[in-house]
């Protein structure tokens, strides 16, 4: 994992750039870095846990779907901090793109009486949509970018 910081990029406040190999066991490296940043800017423990969860879900989604679970490619994560205003986390890959986010279903409530509703996958992105203030997804010839925005203060 490589890191770099620059406090003056586009006058957007502080930013941090991370890259990992596209293997699921390395997602924890990004998770720990994000926890550190969230702690530094004074988020509550509940918020830190929730932002970590969102980042893990989106990074895992990139590894499992964009790269079909194959290691050897890069997943880039950029964190942009505007103190007192907002936190933006962008997960980038150069693999297969996914459908537009408008297709994300809400978190499905399981019916205790109907095991057909006890789905074992597909909860990751609905959780992210539920927990973040805004999300959007861009896909073009240079790759895919999943943006997550959380208001601060």
């Amino acid at each position: 994992m490589s890191t770099e910081t620059n406090q003056n990029q586009d006058d957007k406040g502080q930013w941090l750039s991370l890259s990992i190999n596209s293997q699921i066991e390395d997602t924890v490296l990004v998770a720990m870095a994000i926890r550190g940043v969230c702690s530094m800017i004074g988020l509550t423990l509940e918020d830190i846990n929730r932002i970590e969860l969102c980042v893990v879900e989106v990074v895992n989604n990139a590894i499992e779907h964009a790269y079909s679970g194959c290691s050897g490619s890069r997943v880039d994560v950029e964190v942009v901090i505007e103190p007192g205003n907002r936190l933006e986390i962008i997960v980038k890959d150069k693999g297969k793109s996914m459908p537009a986010l408008g297709d994300i279903a809400a978190v499905q409530v399981p019916d205790p009486a109907n095991p057909d509703t006890w789905t074992t996958s597909g909860r990751g992105l609905p959780i992210v949509e539920q927990l973040m203030d805004a999300i959007h997804y861009e896909s073009n010839e240079s790759g895919n970018a999943f943006h997550m925005i959380r208001q601060l203060g």
Binding site: A31, L53, V56, E57, T119, T120, S121, R123
Partner: peptide
Amino acid sequence: EFMDSSGLGAMVAALK
């Protein structure tokens, strides 16, 4: 300390 939707999915698979 941490569980994601994959861990949750495994728990649901076990219940099923």
